[in-house]
């Protein structure tokens, strides 16, 4: 099942790039390429629950992305104001923020979301907590209040 999603994703990527659906020759070559990539990926053991989660997660991802995008816009506005401010009002600090995501994919999504929102960068993923560099105190508090974590947990879905 996981492998099927993987191959569909890969074939979709290749097909969208190519777009030559009427050209039989290129379609055959494309199918051979997909098969070869699937073989290489199997040999490398790339396809597992860490990187290619179940279908449900991908579906819920489409809800998560708009939320994340809005967060990015909001915090960009904050950084925007500070960069143009002559006084440069920043108070950088290192903070540790606990996380309780269960899956590796969820943890990575969470960590990357923190990095994507300006004002906070995930430096390290430790046991059960992130080491975060925050540009301002407000940004640091923003991570710890847990609203983004709740969204990521929704992305992970029910416990299996």
């Amino acid at each position: 099942m996981r492998y099927l999603i993987f191959v569909v994703l890969l074939a979709g990527f290749f097909g969208l790039l190519s777009g030559q659906f009427h050209n039989g020759f290129l379609m055959v070559v494309g199918a051979l390429c997909i098969a070869l990539i699937a073989l290489i990926s199997a040999r490398m053991a790339l396809v597992d629950e860490e990187s290619y989660p179940d279908l449900g997660t991908w579906v819920r991802m489409s809800l998560y992305v708009p939320y994340l995008f809005w967060q990015i816009v909001l915090s960009n506005w904050d950084v925007f104001k500070r960069v143009w401010d002559p006084a440069l009002p920043v108070s950088p600090q290192l903070v540790r923020a606990p996380f309780s995501t269960r899956t590796a994919f969820g943890t990575v999504t969470f960590a990357n979301s923190i990095t994507l929102t300006p004002g906070t960068v995930t430096i390290e993923v430790l046991e059960g907590e992130f080491l975060i560099h925050a540009l301002t105190t407000e940004a640091a508090d923003g991570v710890k209040d847990g609203s983004m974590e709740a969204q990521v947990k929704r992305l992970e879905g029910a416990i299996k």
Binding site: F6, A38, S41, L46, S51, A104, T107, A111
Partner: peptide
């Protein structure tokens, strides 16, 4: 974990 998951996602 970040690099591992992302590279597994991206290599293919």
């Amino acid at each position: 974990v970040i690099l591992r998951v992302m590279s597994k996602l991206f290599i293919p």
